[in-house]
């Protein structure tokens, strides 16, 4: 099962705190590598809270954990915390203002059997 979503990035004080403790910590990865999905999308994908999700688009892809949204219904709209995981999906060919579209990323999400992407893998991709 696969679904198309628009992902919006946001800031989270707990993830910010975890980043200060170190970008290679489990806490930082757990708080960063997650996607918040609407209950309807979660049901459609047949996944549970915490289950691994592949998030892909034409820029790149990551495997993160699913988190069920506690917001009002927002099917088709997903949220990810600003992080290197999210930035794997952000285009760098930008419009006239030269500002990337951090707040509107189109991506495909599907259940995954792979491990959550490690930050060391992201660094390797940058160096490749």
């Amino acid at each position: 099962m696969e679904a198309e979503v628009t992902i919006v990035a946001f800031q989270d004080i707990f993830q910010n705190e975890a980043r200060k403790k170190g970008i290679y910590t489990d806490e930082y990865r757990q708080l960063s590598a997650q996607i918040i999905l609407d209950k309807q999308d979660i049901t459609r994908l047949g996944v549970k809270d915490g289950q691994r999700i592949s998030v892909k688009n034409e820029v790149g892809g990551v495997v993160v954990a699913a988190k069920i949204s506690d917001d009002d219904p927002h099917p088709g709209l997903a949220f990810m915390i600003n992080s290197p995981w999210f930035n794997q999906l952000v285009r760098d060919d930008v419009c006239d203002t030269s500002i990337p579209g951090f707040k509107r990323i189109a991506a495909r999400v599907s259940p995954s059997e792979e491990n959550v992407t490690q930050i060391s893998e992201i660094l390797q991709r940058m160096r490749a």
Binding site: I23, N87, D92, R125, M126, R127
Partner: peptide, 14 residues
């Protein structure tokens, strides 16, 4: 490298 899109981050890394 953490805050910018992947393409920009990769260009800086190289």
């Amino acid at each position: 490298l953490s805050a910018l899109p992947f393409g920009t981050a990769r260009a800086l890394a190289k």
